[in-house]
Design a protein around this nucleic acid. Structure first.
Lengths: 353, 353
DNA sequence: TTGTAGGCGTTATCAG
DNA sequence: CTGATAACGCCTACAA
């Protein structure tokens, strides 16, 4: 129905294979025929059929994106539009298209991935998350499918190309910053422990404290899902401790927003009564009150480099394993300050006021 | 290389065409051979090749998504992860895959679309935005490609299947709500006027005022890009008016966040001094201080229904044009109240205080 | 430098 | 009910 290579060939009075070569810009075709063919293509409004091309060449020029479960709260994070943009630009640059798969359960996701991979819809895959014991990752690895992960793989770090931030170091730095300000009661509010990013950040936090000779306090470490209600509970618990923290390292901006909120309800002032520092530096972090000090992890680049290195890998299977670390920087705004001498203590549980 | 239909055929001792038929679950195949073939498929770990299938059947079981320009601020809106989720579930349900295309400029986007459409990568397309004079839309329409738009088409509304909210009515309701509370100085803070959603909302606002016998005041209507700096300027201007508004209808939650911020800096209290109501009801709207009264437009459903109706259209080309209106509801939180008798007036420009 | 022919993995149309 | 066989649109040796 549509105009094919044959139609063009006929009009240009050449063989279909010649047209094919012109498309591929094969150097062994004379400029003259190239021109002739191109004119014919224009005249007919020819567009190559990717499907046919894929079938013949066994390559699709498309990469598949694997998102976390769509029911997961992290999915709502503005993180995603931004990585997507990076991925998209990285792919576009090399003329690759993007394929998406999502799903509610882990199995649905795995199904989607096997279909797009085995079904030959994509040449490679990028995982937009990194979690512990991930079936999708294991599947990809077994099959020898080209893939890269955004984040740090849970296992086999040396064998998997990935692009990540140095979350360990970032969190360590951030914690040290708080310590420098004079804080020694610093709590950590983390997200889902199945995500390796959470683990990395926790580790960095602990390391900083240890190096500063501050003893770790289990009560100062709480984990809640990213976002919303998450923050609420965590903060309430933290602040009803006998000696509540004077500073919080929060693993995600949105979560920090929730924290800010709860704090406000409790009448606790940021940064006067408590300091907060968080991660990702998404748009809202500068729109909160007070604007959040946050570490910018350059989300766009995470996506961009992931697309790039996946494509390299696809086009050159012997490409070595790579670990790309995207730099981060602390963006200081107004949620951190020196600890307040006059500590605010909330009424303890079981204490009547 | 991979296991094909032929391998299965050989193992099951049938013809390739028979295998193809059991894949399609053709009723004219005996249960016995079906079983035999299926066993062979399992044994070999067979997965159908979508590419080959697409080529033969001239249908890809994939739909293309067209995003707004990736450089556009709206792209950062948490609106997108949510529509994506809806789209994804709607597509998944019917076993369709998702294809994405983005681009920086309008032409880049158009290119991407023509490639995926003419290249036969997708069976249809959904536009994730609706703007004035959209080349992509015109292209799709000329070519007779199945497509649906999320939002209200600028022209030819009767001829384009679309899924939308009744933004006109929603904004009218919202404005009336403010009027009922006693406000009669209500301003409108809108986004990009190229987006038809902005226009619709503006119209609804004006209608409500007119019906209430409140005269329109041009100075009360400002347009800024969604988000960030947007809000700042707009709000400053509004509040330095001789008679500043006592209530604001803001076209987007994120923008409202920015407004909230500026207001805070100016020392103006919400809702005591000024009421705010906004749109979309994204996660952050309940995490702001005060939590925003916002109209929930059911973003997920927008996506879900769009995918569904596109697929219907693809599978049945004579499917009639449809207009699907997703209901909305006002979610009342704490950003609106009665107007304050003692109005706060900022110093006028040129006035020394 | 260009043309011919076979194949990529399926589906679809005929027969039988 | 099942088996050949010809597309689908393009790529790629191999020939010329």
């Amino acid at each position: 129905m549509a105009v094919t290579i044959k139609d063009v060939a006929k009009l240009a009075k050449v063989a279909p294979s010649t047209v094919s070569r012109v498309i591929a810009n094969n150097p062994r075709i004379s400029e003259k025929t190239k021109k002739k063919v191109r004119e014919a293509m224009d005249e007919l409004g020819y567009h190559p059929n990717f499907i046919a091309r894929s079938l013949a060449s066994q390559s699709t020029q498309a990469i598949g994106l694997v998102m976390p479960s769509s029911t997961d709260v992290v999915f709502q994070n503005p993180f995603f539009p931004t990585v997507l943009r990076g991925l998209s630009e990285g792919a576009h640059e090399k003329h690759y298209a993007l394929y998406m798969t999502t799903g509610k359960t882990d199995n649905e996701i795995l199904d989607g991935v096997t279909q797009m991979v085995q079904g030959g819809r994509v040449d490679g895959v990028v995982l937009l998350y990194s979690k512990i014991e991930d079936k999708v990752l294991m599947y990809l690895q077994e099959r020898g499918i080209p893939f890269v992960v955004i984040g740090k793989p849970f296992k086999h770090v040396e064998e998997i190309t990935h692009v990540d931030n140095d979350n360990f170091r970032a969190t360590k730095e951030v914690t040290e910053y708080l310590i420098q300000l004079g804080h020694d009661h610093i709590a950590f509010v983390g997200g889902n422990l199945n995500l390796v990013v959470t683990v990395e950040r926790l580790l960095g936090y602990e390391k900083a404290l240890r190096e500063a000779g501050i003893s770790l306090n289990d009560e100062y470490i709480v984990h809640e899902e990213f976002l919303r209600e998450g923050g609420q509970e965590a903060v309430r618990e933290l602040l009803s401790l006998k000696v509540p923290p004077t500073a919080l390292v929060v693993a995600d901006d949105l979560m920090a927003l929730g924290v800010l909120n709860t704090l406000d309800e409790l009448g606790i002032k940021v940064p006067e009564d408590i300091s907060i520092i968080s991660f990702n530096n998404v748009l809202v972090s500068e729109m909160s009150r007070p604007p959040l000090t946050s570490v910018d992890i350059n989300i766009f680049d995470l996506g961009f480099d992931a697309a790039r290195s996946l494509i390299q890998k696809i086009e050159n299977p012997k490409e070595p394993i790579k670990r790309i670390i995207i730099p981060h920087q602390i963006v200081k705004r107004f949620s951190c300050s020196f600890p307040n001498e006059e500590r605010v203590f909330l009424p303890q549980k079981g204490t009547f006021s």
